[in-house]
Design a protein around this nucleic acid. Sequence first.
DNA 1: ATGACTGCAAACTCTTTGCACAACA
DNA 2: TGTTGTGCAAAGAGTTTGCAGTCAT
Lengths: 152, 152
Amino acid sequence: MSATAETVGVAAELDRELTERLREGGHRVTSQRLLVHRAVHEQQRHLTAEQVLGSVSQALPSISLPTIYATLELLEDLGLVRRVSTGTGALLFESRRTPHAHAACRRCGQIVDVPAPQIDPDAFAGARAAGFAPEEAQLIVFGLCNACRAAG
Amino acid sequence: MSATAETVGVAAELDRELTERLREGGHRVTSQRLLVHRAVHEQQRHLTAEQVLGSVSQALPSISLPTIYATLELLEDLGLVRRVSTGTGALLFESRRTPHAHAACRRCGQIVDVPAPQIDPDAFAGARAAGFAPEEAQLIVFGLCNACRAAG
DNA sequence: ATGACTGCAAACTCTTTGCACAACA
DNA sequence: TGTTGTGCAAAGAGTTTGCAGTCAT
């Protein structure tokens, strides 16, 4: 990725927002946190921790996987990152800015974003009735992708 | 669990159905498969593989965890069992007969069933538009349970 | 009889933990 | 300067795989 004026501007804006949120929570601002935050938000896709590591390693080769996990957890607590689990392989992390559902192939594990309908209010009401304080919902559609269907 | 006339009747009905499905698919009928099938369907809750093992072990002490996993996968392929992943700890398995959503506590990992609203048809349409052949959807509401909210 | 299924053991993947050093505030 | 955060290594949890013996058909 080349550092065009636009991507620099986007990164600066992301950094500014994260810095603010970190300070609010009494957390320190580190280059690791800024870079992980950028990595998740500059991709439109969902990423595994390993992929975040690969992305951030270009700018900061010494960063480690435990730090990736710790940082993603912190960003999740701050409401900036969302965690998705399809039960196939690794956890996925993505920007929390663009609400959407996921479609997952139950054979090859491929995952794609699906434009999100509004989250069903009944589900939140049901969770509340069960004594939960609902914060967000995750909708995954399982099935077969084109390629796997064609493969029989 | 005592073997009342009623539970024996339910088990017999479950066995009959599974036997039919297995034969259709060219699979063999084994006591392991019958017992795992009963364990998942006689509980109203979702179970981990370990819990299924514990349940089945009472009747068949020699059964092993790899067999539990293999059997649950087969039952899932036959459409009799559903797999749920909240991203916290172990996979859960449950009967496919009773559609519902789940609420998961993001602190303690507790999971409860929530009466299911109809699955959003827009999500299926979106998956189809993305080239998927959707089969089922899974809705999980994340939040804090009563106990964890009270604990601060 | 023969091929699928099971049980055992071990490997594997992904994630988390413990601890010493580094670096933000 | 005092903690918080990071990196390394290792452990941990959960799931899967390979193979020899068993059992359904």
